[in-house]
Amino acid sequence: GQVNVNNTTYTFPTPKLAKEFAQKAAKKYNLTVHVSGNTVTVK
């Protein structure tokens, strides 16, 4: 799974890890998680 945070893309071996990372990043920066297919964007 891929996660985009502040124009930086992070790649994870599983969608589960990507989702967990996205949720932590969203909480940390007070942003929202947007899911589109296999790509998760935090903005």
Rank of each mutant, 00 (worst) to 15 (best):
K43D: 08
T9Y: 09
L31K: 04
G37W: 03
Y10V: 03
T39S: 07
A26Q: 12
P15W: 07
G37V: 03
S36A: 09
Q23V: 11
Q23N: 09
Y10N: 01
K19P: 00
P15N: 11
V40P: 00
T39N: 05
A22T: 01
H34M: 13
Q23K: 14
T11V: 14
K27P: 02
T11S: 07
S36T: 09
A26T: 09
K16Q: 14
P15G: 07
L17H: 08
V5H: 13
T9S: 08
G1A: 12
V3T: 12
T11E: 06
P13M: 07
N30V: 03
N6Q: 13
T32L: 09
N6E: 10
V3R: 03
F12I: 01
V33K: 00
K24D: 05
T9P: 02
V40A: 04
G37P: 00
Y29M: 05
K28Q: 09
G1D: 11
T9L: 07
N7V: 15
H34E: 13
K19I: 10
K24S: 07
T39A: 05
L31A: 08
T39D: 03
P15H: 15
T8F: 14
T8G: 07
L17R: 07
K16S: 10
G1M: 14
H34I: 15
Y10T: 02
V5L: 12
V33G: 01
T8A: 08
T11G: 03
T8L: 10
V40D: 00
A26W: 07
T41E: 05
V42W: 05
L31Q: 05
F21V: 02
V42F: 07
K27H: 08
P13Y: 05
V5M: 12
V35T: 04
K24T: 08
T41Y: 09
K16G: 09
V3K: 06
V5W: 14
A26D: 03
F21G: 01
K16L: 10
Q2P: 13
V3Y: 07
K27I: 09
N4I: 13
F12G: 00
T9V: 13
K24N: 08
L31N: 04
Q2V: 12
T9K: 08
F21H: 02
G37R: 03
A25L: 15
T14D: 06
V40S: 00
P13D: 10
T41I: 11
K19E: 11
A22D: 00
A18Y: 00
A26L: 10
P13G: 06
V5E: 12
P15S: 11
Y29T: 06
A25V: 15
A26F: 09
K28W: 14
P13R: 10
A26G: 05
Y29P: 10
K43I: 15
F12A: 01
K43V: 15
G37D: 04
T11Y: 13
L31V: 14
Y10D: 01
N7S: 15
G1Q: 12
V35L: 09
L17N: 03
P15R: 09
K27L: 12
K16R: 08
T32Y: 06
T32V: 13
K24G: 04
K27D: 09
T8E: 06
F12N: 00
A25K: 03
K27W: 06
T9N: 05
T32G: 05
Q23E: 15
Q23W: 12
G37S: 03
S36W: 09
K28V: 09
T8W: 15
V33E: 00
G1P: 13
V33F: 08
F12M: 02
V42E: 00
K28S: 05
G37L: 04
F21R: 00
S36K: 09
Q23Y: 13
E20Y: 10
V33L: 06
V35I: 08
L31R: 04
P15A: 14
F21L: 01
A25M: 15
G1H: 13
A25P: 00
V33W: 03
Q23D: 13
V33S: 02
N38V: 09
H34T: 14
F12P: 01
N7Q: 15
T32F: 06
T11I: 14
T41L: 07
N6V: 14
F21K: 01
V42Y: 03
E20K: 12
N30E: 04
K43T: 15
P15Y: 08
V42I: 15
K28T: 05
K19Q: 14
L31Y: 07
A25G: 02
A25F: 15
K24M: 15
V42Q: 01
N7A: 14
N38L: 07
A18W: 01
V42K: 01
F12T: 01
T9I: 13
T14F: 03
F21A: 03
K43Q: 14
K24P: 00
Y29L: 06
K28L: 13
T14A: 02
K19D: 06
N7M: 15
Y10F: 10
T9F: 07
G37K: 04
F12D: 01
K27Y: 08
T39Y: 04
Y29H: 08
K43G: 08
N6D: 09
N6G: 13
V40L: 02
H34D: 06
T9H: 06
Q2F: 12
Q23F: 10
A22N: 01
L17M: 12
K16I: 09
N30M: 06
T14E: 03
N30T: 04
N30R: 07
K24R: 14
G1V: 14
L31E: 03
S36Q: 11
T41W: 07
A26H: 09
P15F: 10
A18Q: 00
N30S: 06
N6F: 15
S36P: 00
E20D: 08
A26I: 13
V40R: 00
L17P: 01
A25D: 02
G37E: 05
H34K: 07
A22M: 02
G1K: 06
N7G: 15
Y29F: 08
N4T: 11
T14K: 02
H34S: 13
N38R: 11
Q2Y: 10
K43M: 15
Y29N: 06
F21W: 15
P13E: 09
